[in-house]
Structures are given as structure tokens and as C-alpha cells.
């Protein structure tokens, strides 16, 4: 079973140890997906599988067979990208593709009414697009340069503006 990467069918690697992250970067040269820890702890490797955000470092490529993988290259162009630049939601730029992939999926999650740990009423059918909600939902994507304010601003701008 092939893996669909940004719309293109790709055969899974022969070596079952190869992570989705290493397949993307080292085999397919889709290097927009970054490796920050290879421990599932930083979010830099975030991609979408069947539209949901996951960590590609802890996903074996074989697990993605039969599924659709979308990387930053597949999202491009996305309104979040321009918003990140405009709001200076980046500095070194290394965590940025992972932040943007995570944010794109996160906006969908909020619109679908999926709650978070900071949502007051878990039984409510819709959740607000507040700064606290965005901060909690993006906490799996670490940034060391300290672009957090700009990242949250960019996401709120895109989400409020319904430009997605």
C-alpha cells in the first residue's frame, strides 16, 4: 500500500525502522518538515495524516501506508504563512513549518467544536477562539527563539478572519 504524500503516491521504505519524518526528509527530500528532538517532545516534525496533526518522528513510515500525508510543502500557500511573517511569528524559522501545520489542523479542530484542557464547559457544542485556547492547543509546538506572541497573533488573525 502506498503512502500519499501531498497528493503523490509513494512506496513505503523497505526498512520498517524508517520514520515518516526521515522518509520525508531523507528519501523524498521534503525538508520543510523539521527534526527538533526525534523524541516526540517538540512538535517541529508535525505533519497532517488524513487531515489530523501528528508527529512524524514517532510515526513509522509504514504506519502511514494507505493514508494521506500533508506536509508544509503540501499546505503551501496557506494564509497562516503570510500571517506568521506579518506578525513576526518566527525568528530562526526552524519550528515554523511545524507550528503552521499544527495551527492549520488546530483551526479545524476548534471549528469542529473539539474542546481542550482549558475549555470550561466540555459539553458545549462550540468552543471559543480565545488566546488561552490557542496557547493551550499549540503547546505541543515548542519555540526557543520566543516567537510565541506573534504565533498566537497570527493564528487568531487567520482564524477570526476566516481566511482558511
Amino acid at each position: 500500500m502506498d503512502i500519499t504524500v501531498n497528493g503523490t503516491a509513494v512506496a513505503p521504505p523497505d526498512d520498517a525502522r524508517v520514520s515518516l519524518l526521515d522518509m520525508l526528509r531523507d528519501h523524498l527530500h521534503l525538508t520543510g518538515t523539521k527534526v527538533g528532538c526525534n523524541q516526540g517532545a517538540c512538535g517541529a516534525c508535525t505533519v497532517l495524516i488524513d487531515g489530523r496533526r501528528v508527529l512524524s518522528c514517532l510515526t513509522l513510515a509504514a504506519q502511514a501506508a494507505g493514508r494521506e500525508v500533508t506536509t508544509i510543502e503540501g499546505l503551501d500557500p496557506h494564509p497562516l504563512q503570510a500571517a506568521f511573517v506579518e506578525r513576526d511569528g518566527l525568528q530562526c524559522g526552524y519550528c515554523t513549518p511545524g507550528q503552521i501545520c499544527a495551527a492549520a489542523a488546530m483551526i479545524d479542530e476548534v471549528r469542529a467544536g473539539v474542546p481542550s484542557y482549558v475549555t470550561a464547559d466540555l459539553s458545549a457544542e462550540s468552543v471559543p477562539f480565545s488566546r488561552d485556547e490557542v496557547r493551550e492547543r499549540m503547546s505541543g509546538n515548542l519555540c526557543r527563539c520566543g516567537a510565541h506572541n506573534g504565533i498566537v497573533d497570527a493564528i487568531l488573525e487567520v482564524a477570526d478572519g476566516s481566511t482558511v
Binding site: D26, I72, Q81, A82, V85, G93
Partner: peptide, 21 residues
């Protein structure tokens, strides 16, 4: 001014070291 390399970084196309082959 927005950073001139922002679009490159936000699209994942800025070449960091281990992108090299």
C-alpha cells in the same frame, strides 16, 4: 519591515544544515 527571509522560512524552504544532500 517584515523579515525578508520570512516567506522562505514559513514555507519550509529555507535550507538548514541537515537538508544538505
Amino acid at each position: 519591515t517584515s523579515r525578508v527571509d520570512g516567506p522562505l522560512k514559513a514555507s519550509g524552504r529555507a535550507p538548514f544544515v541537515t537538508e544538505t544532500v
